[in-house]
Amino acid sequence: MNVLTQPFFQHALLAGTAIALACGLVGYFLVLRAQIFTGDALSHVAFTGAMAALAGGYDLRLGLFAATVGVGLLLGGIGRRGRPDDVVIGSVFAWILGLGAFFLTIYTTSRSGAQGGAGTTVLFGSIFGLSSGQTQLAVLIAAAISVVLLLIARPLLFATLDEAVAAARGVPVRLLGFGFLALVGATAGEATQAVGSLLLLGLLAAPAGAAIRLTNRPFHALALSAGLAVGEMWGGLLLSAEAPKLPPSFAIMATASAVYAATFLIRPSRAARPVAA
């Protein structure tokens, strides 16, 4: 019996490829725009949103996407004017996670037939548990994210590298920033299904960080980031299939971290950053 021919593995491979593609593309701009901590914040929100939806009896993904996209837009709204400092962010997100723990307890104690592992599933993902319907939806959403991002890639890159000049040339900088954060929110919701809300930051940051180290040319780096993310997802899934003791989320994160660490060995001397962000 080969695990690679099992339907659960094929679903995971299909959904994982699409999700990794979206994460690699979005993550590159996230790192370039120095908004990694927005991704961190959204991952916290993803947990609370999913738990709130479960506690209220709705589909997990509804709460997931509503919370991440909503907060992504909210952060875009407040980000420009008053830049909240990290003490405020830390306080707010500690509370949001606390709220998530509250909804988790409501869900596990009040709903009969609730599986106790729901919290673990959302926090650390369960890509091998996707059904064919869930896989289809995940692929569709990931494809939509990727297409939208590729459509706005050129003006977004311009706005990222030199905001003032881009604004002067008539690029809608603010609208792009807004739309990008909504995309990040949707990606966070997608990635939560694959590697879980606590680990999605690694899937966003590691391939993009590695790509930025390896090449200076923006569109090469964008393609490389997406390629690396997909490759790391495949590597992680295969590793997890070969060694069933390793949870897939760990295997994916370990592969991604190893690739990123390897880029430091290849070119240790050069501080490869295309722009002064």
Partner: peptide, 24 residues
């Protein structure tokens, strides 16, 4: 800088993933 925050994000996620591995 941008790169350093990518490193930190990766390290944090990897640490949490290790914790999850030990738990499972």
């Amino acid at each position: 800088g941008a790169e350093e925050s990518a490193v930190t994000g990766t390290v944090q996620a990897f640490a949490l993933a290790c914790g999850y591995l030990f738990i499972s």
